[in-house]
Design a protein around this nucleic acid. Structure first.
Lengths: 224, 224
DNA sequence: GAGTCAACGATTTTCGAAAATCTTCTCCAT
DNA sequence: ATGGAGAAGATTTTCGAAAATCGTTGACTC
């Protein structure tokens, strides 16, 4: 076996990326068991790096471990969506507040740049090519990361990152329905305005509301 | 090789416990490299479970991974102490607030019981036998866990747990100096009083102050 | 018919060694 | 002296198979 590295410096890193992407793409559904045999076939490597990748994914909440019964994709639920949203409102709200208070001109530049890149892709829609949608997701993540990047607290930042990717799973579940009554681009624009105007409380409120609206839009999926 | 399990259901779990304890006990100092050979000797097992244990410890911030250069004990610093403290004040403050708002009689009972167990051990002092100090640490952790346990947000709770053990490393660094001017037991008692009186904001403030004082007492260690 | 238990198959978990990578030291040219 | 190439040693990372464990099936008893 033994094939070349794609991006990271270890096979375990590659496995992490591959499995995470496969989960994001829906190849494995929430609750599905993740058998080592399948994952080894997917990643084309031995069990050891796969195991390490799953350990990392479990730490971030993507997968869960049941002793001697292996790993499975973490289930999605309305309760967790609400929980993650509330915790995000707390942590990222504070992080953006601190960012606005502490951020310098470099931070402003990063924020404006990230926003511009995201805004260039018109609107997330179902009929978009997958590649463009993936591209938007990446820029969206970069934008939100930029927003909080000047908070000055690495610990808080790490928490925000993890919460973001955890919420991301819910967002990807529903590319379709957000199209309607909501002005996501406007919300993002307003966040930038408030940040540049150095309105810390306002930006924090706007971000909390932004997440609240996103969660509300997703709740429909669990009305089954 | 292949020895019996101590508590968990897998060797990896045992390794996790053993290494975590060894770090807590100071057998490995912050910044020390953790060589697999040493850890295998310590745990008396092969490399695979040790590797999994380190992956988990890294996820919780006890250790850090440098690709192809292995793991080492996460360094301690004044900056991180302050960062962790501030983040704890944010997250645990909110968690205790929610706990007071949502907690039922069972929660009150858990809290009172945990406090009682902790209060029975008089005071943490240098001349205490190690076993008793370890015992107090465990009860202290249980007490703080009980305090936030009714917040209703598993995600927030998990964050609090991780932050607690991360801060724990700093506390264990200094069993000695807290003895002086501070009334830790009184602070704990006051927390229980406020919680039982259903003063959510008061309890949150008291907890934030409690952590602030703890951090302040520890800052001396980094004045080197 | 319901319940217990042993054996089987599927899967995870662990092992011990091989391969890959980094670090250090030596030696040589500048 | 200084700096760099290259070999040797130490350590991590990965492999492929063996061992341990779990869930299930099916025979056997009450």
């Amino acid at each position: 076996m033994q094939q070349k590295r794609t991006g990271s410096r270890t096979l375990a890193g590659d496995a992490y990326e591959a499995i995470r992407q496969a989960i994001g793409a829906g190849d494995f559904k929430p609750g599905d068991r993740l058998r080592f045999a399948d994952l080894q076939a997917l990643c084309d490597m031995s069990v050891t790096p796969v195991r390490e990748a799953l350990a990392r994914l479990t730490a971030e909440g993507f997968t869960v471990l049941d002793d001697h019964r292996g790993y499975s994709v973490a289930p999605l639920s309305l309760a967790e969506l609400r929980d993650v949203t509330a915790t995000r409102q707390l942590c990222e709200g504070e992080a953006v507040r601190l960012s606005v208070l502490n951020g310098d001109a470099d931070w402003e530049a990063r924020l404006v740049a990230a926003h511009h890149l995201m805004a260039r892709i018109p609107q997330v829609r179902d009929d978009m090519p997958t590649a463009m949608r993936e591209d938007w997701e990446a820029r969206h993540a970069t934008f939100h990361a930029a927003l909080v990047s000047a908070c000055g607290s690495p610990v808080l930042l790490e928490i925000c990152e993890k919460l973001f990717s955890r919420a991301d799973r819910y967002r990807r579940l529903s590319v379709s329905l957000s199209g309607g009554a909501r002005d996501v681009a406007g919300e993002h624009r307003r966040l930038v305005e408030l940040a540049l105007a150095r309105d810390a409380e306002g930006a924090a409120s706007a971000l909390r509301e932004h997440y609240g609206l996103t969660a509300a839009a997703l709740e429909g999926f669990f009305a089954v």
